[in-house]
């Protein structure tokens, strides 16, 4: 029955494509513009990190009047974003839909081949930012450096608790990378969201985390948690005293991408419209301020380079997941 429905949806999408195609031919001359509200699909539930970001982008577009139509966030967080990916696939050719992504953009189709999504079919619009990962410990401990950390964790073994988001998600990938690089074996405790993870570190329910800066920065400013090292290529401006793992001799770099994509089968002028729009969002004062405050690495990427970036990241994640034994 599932197959039949999928087929019907596919047909529907083709029909919609035909209608849209005839409807927009006249508009091509002066460039394409959306004529009705744009659905802004979010790969996470309401209140999650990706959701916050999508709503923040929505506020930038509306405040600065970058678009004449509203952008409406639609949460499709089910199945680690499987729901959202499927929606985007079923809407091939829909000019009034875009999606905010995170790293489950790569991992979910790999882990659930059943959803039949190939992200290379989608239209890349822009990469807005990359979020960093930092290794944190509670500031009540004596651990001041990664060397101290590795020593203590080796001693404690599986008695050492690393808190993070769900298994197979970013935090667990980073943990596996850490374990491999330093020859450690710790106990990974999955929680539902990054904020909860950080709070559990402050409450001493876990011993370390790999939170994004934005999730732990409030606690850091209050002197509750201590950053040890960042999994970035260069030091983060907001954390000038925190070394990178690269400096410490381990090639550990991992980032969470914050990008916008559109369904496949779009006309070039449609993609061009969204790319131009999001370039404006990127340059806005609000976005630049947000990047700084949350220690995001903000270098925009569009068009072919973005496509290549996605392809490379997908490959890297495939290798990581294989190593973890999550996929074959």
């Amino acid at each position: 029955m599932g197959l039949k429905r999928r087929g019907a949806l596919g047909l529907g999408a083709v029909g919609a494509l035909a209608i849209v195609a005839t409807g927009t031919t006249s508009a091509i001359a002066e460039g394409w513009k959306p004529v009705k509200p744009v659905e802004f699909v979010v790969m996470a539930g309401q209140g999650g990190g990706a959701d916050k970001l999508a709503r923040f982008i929505q506020s930038i577009i509306e405040k600065n009047k970058f678009a004449e139509v509203p952008f409406i966030p639609v949460n499709k967080g089910g199945g680690s974003g499987a729901d959202a990916l499927r929606t985007l696939k079923d809407n091939a050719g829909n000019d009034h839909m875009i999606m905010a992504t995170l790293n489950s953009y790569y991992t979910t189709p790999l882990r659930n081949p059943g959803i039949g999504v190939n992200i290379e079919e989608f239209t890349p619009i822009i990469r807005l930012a990359e979020d960093a990962f930092i290794l944190w410990v509670n500031s009540e401990t004596d651990i001041k450096s990664v060397d101290d950390y590795a020593k203590v964790v080796k001693e404690k073994g599986t008695g050492w608790k690393m808190g993070g988001t769900g298994s197979g998600q970013e935090d667990s990938l980073v943990t596996t990378m850490l374990e491999k690089a330093y020859g450690l074996k710790m106990t990974y405790v999955p929680f539902k969201g990054g904020g909860t993870v950080a709070a559990n570190l402050v409450g001493n329910h876990v011993n370390s985390t790999v939170n994004n800066p934005s999730e732990a920065i409030g606690f850091q400013q209050a002197g509750k948690v201590r950053p040890l090292a960042a999994l970035t290529a260069e030091r983060l401006p907001l954390f000038p005293d925190v070394p990178t793992f690269k400096e410490l001799g381990k090639d550990l770099v991992y980032r969470m991408q914050r990008s916008v994509v559109a369904p496949g089968g779009l006309k070039p002028e449609v993609a061009a419209y969204y790319t131009a729009l999001f370039e404006k969002v990127f340059k806005s004062e609000e976005w630049q301020g947000y990047c700084k405050k949350n220690a995001l690495q903000c270098t925009p990427l569009t068009g072919e380079p973005l496509k290549a970036y996605f392809a490379a990241e997908k490959k890297a994640h495939e290798a990581l997941l294989k190593e973890m034994g999550e996929i074959k």
Partner: peptide, 25 residues
């Protein structure tokens, strides 16, 4: 703490980000 005690406060948290506030201690 910047952590939601309920699903609704999770969205309010998102709102605080939009308004340019950092929840936390």
């Amino acid at each position: 703490l910047g952590i939601p005690g309920s699903p609704t406060t999770a969205i309010l948290l998102g709102g605080m980000v939009i308004w340019g506030l950092t929840p936390g201690p």
